[in-house]
Structures are given as structure tokens and as C-alpha cells.
Design a binder for these strands. Structure first.
Lengths: 342, 342
DNA sequence: CTGTTAGCGCTTTCAC
DNA sequence: GTGAAAGCGCTAACAG
């Protein structure tokens, strides 16, 4: 309840001296600085957020908009929201949560009322109505994920293309010559952000470049166990799998493999690409190039803070390079071509 | 960018008239009210949150604190955070997210700076450091879940006791005479909020009252498939199960049942108590008395808003009655006592 | 290096 | 029913 005036009186200095002593925005004699800090501590002073925001024209709040449709993966999106929040705190910002119906309207509202200084957009769909809104908002906005049209938007995403390439390279280096991709369900590809397509293309491209035999299967969420059959039908000689699919399909695939008596990595090597782990469950036992919130979110928040503070100019897509997590699911191909093993 | 002064000029009235016309806090001639609204719309006016908060001494922001340890169920807690956010919007409040390390410190900060008008505490542990903090904060706080000592706190939770009773009653009414409880892992019971204990006690109590044979098993997360064996060893005649356990255990149990050729509900009836569904996955195919965020969160937010606006006084535990969701997993006992079937 | 002061844009008495 | 004006508590020129 103490105000800056109380602190000034207590420390025997002026109000502005207190303000500057606390913000460090101009140099203060060590002596008076200590006196101010002591007075503030004695009175339990904390600047009122609203007064500060009004005077400084900055709320130190970032809005996070994430529609969270019934079919989006809640645990993954919680991980993203957490990562954004943690990154924001590192820059002294708090995060406001805008969900469901309010994901769109809340963006408008928090921009119009200056509730938030900037907005992070999560759960981005290919044709996301928040993209057009962002272009017309006059408030810094950063997308985590890419809508179909990124024109005029500032976006950050994992470099899925590089991740897919690296997955194929890894398998190729281990001597695999026939590789399969377990991709997303067809309807997800239509609706979601375009990263599944980017992965499919990059996978095929690099496999062709390396002269590998390859194929892809898109699972059916109602019959996830069929993917393995489908893949073996398409690619009887397959020795390695790239997984970029919903967790439920990955789990089903694991079961299908063990039912068939196929061991990872002895019979089949596996690498996942662009999958987000549920922090509250044990991770899938596969080598991964994950879509890790800890990778993209800090970059997105840094970018947003740069925009807010005028240090950066808007627009542009930042693709974050993937990191490789080893879990021992890649082994040399069962029947390697001796001269080609790296 | 338009201010209230712009609107006043445009409408040819005073600033206070604009304020009252928009807030409705005092009666305004229909004519001038319309004129003000039109002017505001024409200028695209939206009151600045910071100015409003400073003058009104209210930020219209509720902080949501949820530590989210690595082992907490992220999807469930996202569902709670969403439900709180949606309920808050219904009262014209936004929600600020405080996670991880900042869950505790953020409470202090948002209270001291008047960043938030009130705080909702999620992910409550039995001995939660946020309980003592809440008592000393001088800022309205509502817990969703019960810490061990609720003295001086305002709490809202599902009535787990009633839920356990109702589950046993349902099975008894269907003619079951031997029932098992699959509870939480032992270490969870020690650390978490005390609801698992409340369920165990209520289960045993009501089963005794009804003269049922009963037993409980606590799963081991590293060997979830063992629970069915354990239960059948303890209770060979079991015809019905009450499930109040992590989702992973429930899934493992489902698998164990089908491996043994036991059909639900033909061979075994099942009811879940106090479990939270992951909205992004298909629900467990069992009758439920769920811990549904949609039940507790609106009550908690109503309570908090009552505290903020001075309509309610703090303290007290509100237990929300459970609702029953039928999914056809309860059938009459296989070997009913004819005279007792209801 | 420090103090004075003019706002920031709104809510809310108080007067009419 | 409406208007004038005093703050809310802080930041950031501007002056010294």
C-alpha cells in the first residue's frame, strides 16, 4: 500500500530519485541508492502495475492466444504456454491467457485497450483468422508456427525441413536404404499448419537425393494399428522408420511392432521428427528431432520483446534448427551394403 | 488511440457523461447514451486498461498459479486453466498465468503490485507453500483443491466423498456385492492433495455400510499392469471396480482386462471417480463421476469475484456435488442374489 | 547527480 | 440528467 511518495519521504529524497534508483534508468550516487532501497524495503514498497503502465505506456504483459479446439493436444499446448510464460518472465513480462472463443476477440481487445504490449500466437492453423487480424492490429504479434500466408507476419517455427533431412541423413549414415515415413492423418494435414506437408516433402526429397527407396503412410486415427501393416505392404524391405505423427499413433505403432516381434533398433530403426513430448509422461524410446517448446518459444519471445521495445522491425520467418536427442533407436541396417556404411 | 476526451468532444458531452454512458453506472438519457455510443464506435474508442485500472483501483485481472511439476498431468491442468479463463471472461476478467518457479513468487508480485485483483490456485498439494502465502497476502485467493490445513483459506473442490459414495451405491444397486478400488500410487497419496485418501476412506465406509466385501489396490506406476493381478488375488470374487487412478493406470487396466478375456460390463462393472478426462483424447469407456474442471472452476471464479467485489467474505470450503456420466460400463452383477436386485 | 512538474487516461465525488 | 475537477501512482522530460 506504500506509494513512491512514501518512499521518497522516508529516504529524504525526491520522487524521481526513487523512481530512477529503482529502475536504474539514470545514474544515482551509491549512497542515496542504498538509502532509497532500504526505505523501499522498510515500507514494503512495490510500484503499482497500473500506475506504472499508464505513465510508461507499457503494461509489461504479453498476451498468449491459443484456441485449443477439442482435438488439439492439450499437454503439448500447455508446454508451449509454459515455455512462453517462462521466457517472458526472463524479460520481465507476464502473460495473459486467451483461449477458445476469446482467442480471436481477446487479441483485438488486448491490443485496443493496451492491455498487452504484444501477442504470441500459438496453435496456428494453415488458414488462421488470427493472421489477418495480426496484420491489421498495429500491435506487435509473433506467431509460433506458420500459417499458409506469412506475408507481413513475424513467425518463428522449428525448421521441419532441416529436421526431416537430418532424420533421413542419420538413417542413411547408418546404412539404411529403405525408409518409411509415418506421417499425420490426412484430415490433420488439410486443417493444421503446413508443417506436416513440409516434412513429407523434405523427407521424399532427401531420400531421393540419397537414392533411398521410400514411401509414406498417413494413419487413420480410428485404426492406428493399421499403419504398420500399410507400411510393410508398401515397403516390404523397410529397415527404418521416420515418425512424425500423433502420439497415439506412435504408441499404437510401438505395440504393433512388439506384437510382430520386431525389435527396435535390432530389426527396425526409428527416428521421430517434429513431435512434442508430453512432459508428464515417459518419453517415447526413440531418437528424436523434436518440436521442443524450449527451442522455439524463447526465440519467439525474444523477437516479440524486440518488436515491443522498437529494437527490431516486424516481418520475417525465423526457422530454429532442430536438436537431436539420442535414445538408442537407430542401429546399423540389418543387411548393410559394406561399401556404403559410414 | 482515441481517448475518452475525443469521444466527449465528438459526442458534444462531458467526459464523465461518456464514462457513465459506457459503464452504465448511472442513468443517462437514452438520447445522449446513443449519441455517445455512436461517437465511440465512430472513433473506434476502447478505454485504456491501465488508466481504467489506476482510477478504478481494479485491474480486471485474475492470476492463475499452477506450478506444473514435471509429474503433474499437463493436459488436465491445461483444462483447468482454460476453464478458469473462460469463467473469468464471463465476469469480465482476464487471466494471468503464473507457472513453475514463478507460481509462488508471482503470487506475491501480482498482489503487491496490484497486477491482479485476485488469485486462483491450481495444482494444490497437501502441504502447499502457497497456503501460508495466501493467508498473509491481503489479496483475495481461492484454492481449487484442498491443502491439508484449510484454516483461513477459501477453497473449492469436488465432493470426492459424495462421488465415492455414489459410485459404491451405483454398483450396489446393480447387485454387486464384491467391489475393488484401484486407487493412486502410494507416493502420490503422500505428496498430492488429500483427495485420494478421502476417496479411499469414503469408499470403504460406504462399502461397509452396505455390507459389501471390498479391498483396494494402489498401483505402481512402473508396473501398472500388475494392478489387476493384485486385485484378483485380494478379491477373487470381484464383480465391480471403482477406478480413481492416473489415466495411464486406467489404460493399462483396460488392456489387462481384455488380455484376460474379461469384458466390461458383462464380466466386470467399472465406475471412475474423480478422474479428469483429457479433452484431446477419446474418453475412457467407463461410467464416471469425474473431477470436471467445468464443475469446480466456475464456482471458484464466482467465489473469487465475490471476494474481489466485496460481496462475499473469505474462508470456507465449498464442495461441488459430482455429476454422473453414463457410458454403459455398469451392468447387473453376473451372479445376482435375486431378491436384492434393484 | 538530484529535484520539480507535467502529464498518462480514466473514475468518481461534488456541484448544479 | 449532466458537467467540472480532483485525483489514482507513476514516468520522464526539463531545469538546475
Amino acid at each position: 500500500m506504500a506509494t513512491i511518495a512514501d518512499v521518497a519521504r522516508e529516504a529524504g529524497v525526491s520522487i524521481s530519485t526513487v523512481s530512477y534508483a529503482l529502475s536504474g534508468k539514470r545514474s544515482i550516487t551509491e549512497d542515496t541508492r542504498v538509502r532509497v532501497l532500504a526505505a523501499a524495503a522498510r515500507l514494503g514498497y512495490a510500484p503499482k502495475a497500473a500506475a506504472r503502465a499508464l505513465a510508461a505506456r507499457r503494461s509489461q504483459i504479453i498476451a498468449v492466444t491459443t484456441p485449443l479446439h477439442p482435438d488439439t493436444d492439450h499437454s503439448a499446448h500447455m508446454a508451449f504456454a509454459m515455455a512462453v510464460t517462462t521466457a517472458a518472465r526472463d524479460h520481465d513480462y507476464d502473460t495473459l491467457l486467451l483461449v477458445q472463443d476469446d482467442a480471436l476477440e481477446g487479441m483485438r481487445r488486448s491490443a485496443a485497450t493496451s492491455l498487452a504490449d504484444g501477442i504470441v500466437v500459438l496453435d496456428v492453423a494453415a488458414h488462421d483468422e488470427r493472421a489477418d487480424l495480426a496484420r491489421s492490429l498495429g500491435c506487435p504479434v509473433v506467431f509460433i508456427g506458420l500459417p499458409a500466408d506469412t506475408g507481413g507476419l513475424t513467425c518463428v517455427d522449428l525448421d521441419f525441413r532441416a529436421a526431416a533431412h537430418e532424420a533421413v541423413d542419420t538413417l542413411h549414415a547408418a546404412g539404411h536404404r529403405t525408409v518409411g515415413l509415418v506421417s499425420q492423418p490426412a484430415d490433420v494435414i488439410a486443417r493444421e499448419a503446413n508443417y506436416p506437408l513440409r516434412i513429407e516433402q523434405a523427407f521424399a526429397e532427401r531420400a531421393d537425393e540419397l537414392g533411398l527407396t521410400h514411401a509414406l503412410v498417413r494413419p487413420d486415427l480410428d485404426a492406428p494399428h493399421a499403419v504398420l501393416d500399410d507400411l510393410l505392404r508398401l515397403l516390404p524391405e523397410v529397415t527404418a522408420i521416420v515418425l512424425s505423427t500423433p502420439t497415439s499413433v506412435a504408441v499404437a505403432l510401438t505395440e504393433s511392432l512388439s506384437r510382430r516381434g520386431l525389435r527396435v533398433p535390432d530389426d527396425l530403426s526409428v527416428v521421430t521428427v517434429g513431435m512434442t513430448a508430453d512432459p508428464s509422461r515417459p518419453p517415447l524410446p526413440f531418437d528424436s528431432l523434436p518440436l521442443d517448446p524450449a527451442l522455439t518459444c524463447p526465440v519467439a519471445v525474444d523477437t516479440l520483446v524486440g518488436l515491443i521495445e522498437g529494437a527490431t522491425s516486424p516481418g520475417g520467418v525465423t526457422l530454429v534448427p532442430p536438436t537431436h536427442v539420442s535414445r538408442g533407436s537407430v542401429a546399423p541396417a540389418p543387411v548393410p551394403h559394406p561399401t556404403e556404411v559410414v
